[in-house]
């Protein structure tokens, strides 16, 4: 048969395309559940990490089972809120995580943002807000866990797509993330977020700031912008929950102190940030 005749070429390419498509479709379908589980694991692991749980995932024999178990134990509720802080019925917070970028592209009053509610071992509620922003090379994301007073940060995790390893990519290290513990997102009655300041130690006694990563200035600035712009998106929810919190527990200060005792690992700074809020 003439190998350069049109009919041979057409038959040849058709057969090839069909074989390739079949094998790829089969491979993709059979591997998809594992890939999906990997992604979900990662997301759940990050959410848990922001409230200081699920830390032994790497050591666990069955990572998926461990993460799911911890997730079921510590994450008690998830829902979505609109810009005024009202719950949106029928929205799946977990699915929304995948489309945060699209939500932030919408005008503010149409956004639907996910919220996760976790708990401490003592049973006290923690509010986990997903974050989405951009760094030097690509997107940044993370989770910010707030105490039930909606002011003090209980924990934070960050991740990124392609920041420079060893420089900007250091935002994923515990050393950077632990700085956020006990800091305050409020200055007075205004949501100010957290400034990421240059120079080691420069933020030591500032309740609204942490140290930036040396050599990772643009990524650090990205984290700062991400926190403040995202928190403004949640402003309605934060204000609402905060006022509810005050109403439901008139002895707010007592409760806040209780919080302190139950988490002795938090830096002393938490006291300061709380006093700042109480004074103003």
């Amino acid at each position: 048969m003439n190998k350069n005749s049109n009919s041979y070429i057409i038959i040849y390419s058709t057969v090839m395309v069909v074989i390739v498509a079949l094998v790829l479709a089969f491979a993709s379908l059979s591997l998809q559940p594992i890939q999906k589980a990997n992604q979900d694991n990662e997301t759940k692991g990050a959410i848990l990490m922001s409230i200081g749980q699920g830390m032994d995932a790497e050591k666990a024999k069955d990572k998926t089972a461990y993460i799911n178990e911890e997730y079921a134990k510590y994450i008690i509720e998830s829902f979505a809120v609109d810009s005024k802080g009202n719950k949106v019925e029928g929205a799946d917070a977990f699915a929304l995580l995948g489309s945060l970028k699209d939500e932030y592209a919408k005008p503010e009053n149409e956004r639907v943002l996910p919220v996760f509610v976790g708990k401490k071992d003592s049973g006290e509620k923690l509010y986990i807000l997903p974050l989405w922003g951009s760094g030097l090379w690509g997107p940044l994301w993370g989770y910010l866990a707030l105490e039930s007073d909606m002011t003090t940060i209980y924990g934070a995790v960050f991740d990124h797509k392609g920041e420079t390893p060893g420089l900007g990519a250091e935002i994923t290290t515990a050393a950077f993330q632990n700085q956020f513990k006990g800091k305050s997102i409020f200055n007075g009655n205004e949501i100010v977020g957290i400034s990421v300041l240059k120079g080691a130690g420069s933020s030591a006694d500032n309740p609204n700031a942490v140290d930036a990563i040396s050599g990772g200035t643009i990524t650090s600035r990205g984290v700062q912008n991400m926190i403040i712009s995202n928190l403004q998106g949640y402003a309605g929810f934060i204000e609402k929950t905060k006022s509810e919190d005050v109403v439901s527990s008139p002895q707010d200060e007592d409760q806040a102190n209780l919080t302190d005792e139950s988490t002795p690992d938090l830096p002393v700074i938490e006291d300061q940030s709380l006093t700042v809020r109480e004074n103003e």
Partner: peptide, 25 residues
Amino acid sequence: SIPSRIRIIVQLVVIAFLVILVDQV
């Protein structure tokens, strides 16, 4: 068996096919 006129594209398809498999795995 490859027709010489579409040689390059056949090569690309085979390579891309293998790379997708590797990526999925």
